[in-house]
């Protein structure tokens, strides 16, 4: 694996970790909407996930099509796709 891909994979793993915690808190809060501790955790995790996402998109390309901002080329369709290893 190239150093470039190693960095990409590591950053993606971090983002996936934060996104998962965010999702888990999302489900918990759906049934506990007044839980202050969970609300605080969700806020900080969501902010961290957003930062990691911005860093990933800037370095390695879009995760979602609305993050494609290049005026030269539509980079959304470029691989690798998530099912490709």
């Amino acid at each position: 694996m190239t150093i470039h891909m190693a960095g990409r994979d590591e950053l993606m793993k971090q983002l996936m970790t934060y996104d998962f915690v965010e999702k888990e808190l999302n489900l918990f809060l759906d049934t506990h909407p007044m839980d202050m501790k969970a609300l605080e955790m969700h806020k900080s995790v969501a902010e961290k996930a957003m930062e990691l996402r911005a860093e990933f998109v800037q370095k390695y390309g879009p995760i979602s099509p609305n993050e494609c901002r290049s005026l030269e080329k539509w980079c959304w369709i470029e691989g690798p796709w998530p099912w490709e290893n």
Binding site: W76, I77, E78, G79, W81, W83
Partner: peptide, 12 residues
Amino acid sequence: QRFSMTDNVCKG
């Protein structure tokens, strides 16, 4: 169907 597509245009 997208898993067996061979190029990025079709996957996209």
